[in-house]
Design a protein around this nucleic acid. Structure first.
Lengths: 248, 248
DNA sequence: CGCAATATTGACCACTCTCAATGAGGGTGG
DNA sequence: CCACCCTCATTGAGAGTGGTCAATATTGCG
């Protein structure tokens, strides 16, 4: 029922708990990169504080954001296929991350079936998330996409004990637009429309959701591909055992 | 460079070779299901002949296709996250598949690091594919999507020794439209336009591509989100070690 | 041979992109 | 502390892609 806009997960400290390793967090500043395309896959990273965007730089200098990541979430899986990263990961604000060298991870997977299972489950969740994202971006209207995006954010924050209805967007409108495949102006307009309709109040990067239910109905409503009455669409559960998520 | 529309892969018989198991193919008829949402994840399946669509049934009876799969490709990974399938897999024509029980797979992963690595790589490839698909569906025009779809098909068939320029579409226009997030009419229209422009010739489900290059340029051209001149967009390599692919 | 499903084509219209202008914040230097 | 600038965000007007509705082939099947 909950829309899927962002990564999906595994218990936040799951990896740390399972591996018994908890490296000290590395601080990075706004705009700093954890990895870039072409970098060998040395490690996976767990965000400890702040937030990160994972994106694919394109040939023409443009970029495509494939995920936003918050504390407890794992990034770096984009390098799994080829052992070298295909995406870049940049901090959206001052951020700290823990590094898990892949060599250690491989050893752990070898020695502890539980780690392996957890890791597989985590990958499966990520696949699920991407499939849901595909639905959102491929079949939903601008309103549906933004609603889905916000609900996903809300859900993830709630899972971490933050307020699900009041939060700060660490990414710019441009990032959101890029992520959702919309124009910046459209994002802005939809925010305004939502506010006018009393769904939420938004001021710059501060969002306060006022009607979660109605927002949810928006996600499962408009695809512009189905019929005059926009029948509801299930997006598939994003409910996970753990409280955290993972990413690209 | 090659657009990514469909699953990505692992050596076709990679799983069989690695596991040393090669079960006999099970035949299924058009419309028969290998699994449905809610089914426990008993096995993964490799398509041996024919073709399969993997899709998510929605609340309202509609469906969302998340992949088409051809001989050599693996399906069933949608159940990895929760140990039960979230998608359905239906044969598009008379099809045979080999079954790989997950229990065996787990044992193999435990006993043979190579299997585990291969499996991880394969999952990574699938993630990459989905990310590329996200790009295609989220940022490309109708022409770009169909071009990407056809090129992906072309590439996969070529990798298997079939003609990359002449093939039969085992899925209906409705399936294609569903998969690409378009209306059936749009798919039909774009096919016609492509034919008018000499890019390909199409008659019902038979397609003959006449200008692969120009088709490729279409994919990296129109996003409708970038600027007046539609700068080219890299979609990321879909080149895999093996000749086969995997799926949902 | 007809019925049903699939595919194509046309007319119309809505959503959202593009272009352009204005407003609000945040930073730097005077 | 204020002026200035630059980025980010908002808002409006016009245009275009693609969805919807509807009618007409074409195919496949009983």
């Amino acid at each position: 029922m909950r829309p899927a806009c962002l990564p999906c997960g595994l218990a936040p400290e799951g990896l740390e708990r399972l591996t018994g390793v908890s490296p000290r967090p590395l601080p990075v500043g706004h705009g700093d990169h954890a990895f870039r395309p072409g970098d060998p896959l040395r490690a996976l990273y767990v965000v400890k504080s702040g937030s990160v965007k994972v994106y694919k730089p394109m040939a023409d200098g443009d970029e495509q954001i494939v995920g936003f990541h918050f504390p407890g979430e794992l990034i770096g899986l984009d390098g799994l296929a080829t052992n070298s990263h295909t995406c870049a990961a940049a901090a959206l604000e001052t951020t700290t991350m823990c590094e898990f060298p892949v060599i250690q991870l491989h050893e752990m997977c070898h020695n502890y079936p539980l780690v392996r299972h957890e890791f597989n489950r985590l990958l499966g969740n990520h696949l699920t998330h991407l499939r849901n994202m595909l639905l959102l971006v491929g079949r939903k209207s601008a309103e549906g996409r933004l609603a889905g995006f916000l609900l996903d954010l809300s859900g993830r924050l709630k899972a971490r004990g933050y307020s699900p209805c009041q939060f700060y967007l660490s990414m710019s409108r441009l990032d959101i637009a890029n992520y959702l495949g919309l124009a910046v102006e459209t994002v802005s307009r939809v925010f305004s429309r939502f506010q006018d309709e009393g769904l939420l109040s938004v001021q710059l990067r501060h969002v306060a959701i006022q009607d979660l239910d109605r927002l949810g109905r928006l996600v499962n409503a408009g695809s512009g591909l189905v019929g005059p009455f926009r029948p509801p669409r299930q997006l598939g559960a994003m409910t996970f055992a753990g409280a955290a998520t993972m990413s690209s």
